[in-house]
C-alpha cells in the first residue's frame, strides 16, 4: 500500500496515510528516499526539494513558507515552516469597519 497521497497535482508536500518510520525507505517519483524522522498519519513530507522562503503548496495553494532548506522526503511541519499570514494579525490591526459605522 502507498504510504502517502497527493491532494493536488501542484502540491510540493505529500500527506502520510500510513505512519512512516525513521530509517524506512519510501519511493517518491521512482526514487528511494531514506526517512530521517518518523512521520505520523495526516502529517506532511516534501515531494521535492524546497528552498527557504519558498511556498509550501497543499490543496494547490500556498499554506506557508519554508524557513530552512527542505529535502525531498523530509518531514514538513512547524520546525521548518512558518505562516505567511500576518502573524501579528490581532483586533488592533483589523481593517474592517467597526459595527458602529456599518451601513444600516
Amino acid at each position: 500500500m502507498k504510504k502517502y497521497i497527493q491532494l493536488h497535482p501542484s502540491d510540493n508536500v505529500l500527506i502520510v496515510i500510513d505512519t512512516i518510520k525513521e530509517g524506512e525507505y519510501i519511493e517518491i517519483d521512482e526514487t528511494e528516499i531514506y526517512i530521517k524522522q518518523s512521520v505520523p498519519v495526516g502529517h506532511k513530507i516534501a515531494a521535492c526539494t524546497i528552498k527557504p522562503e519558498e511556498s509550501i503548496i497543499k490543496y494547490g495553494v500556498p499554506i506557508g513558507l519554508a524557513t530552512q532548506p527542505i529535502n525531498k522526503g523530509d518531514y514538513v511541519h512547524i520546525h521548518n515552516v512558518k505562516s505567511a499570514y500576518i502573524p501579528t494579525y490581532t483586533l488592533q490591526t483589523t481593517f474592517i469597519e467597526t459595527p458602529k459605522t456599518l451601513k444600516k
Binding site: 505520523p40 495526516g42 499554506i63 506557508g64 505567511a84
Partner: peptide
Amino acid sequence: ADGGLTTIEEKSMGAYC
C-alpha cells in the same frame, strides 16, 4: 499542530477545499 496542521492557512484550507 498535533494533528499535522502547520499553519492557520493549512487549517482553513482543510475546510475551504
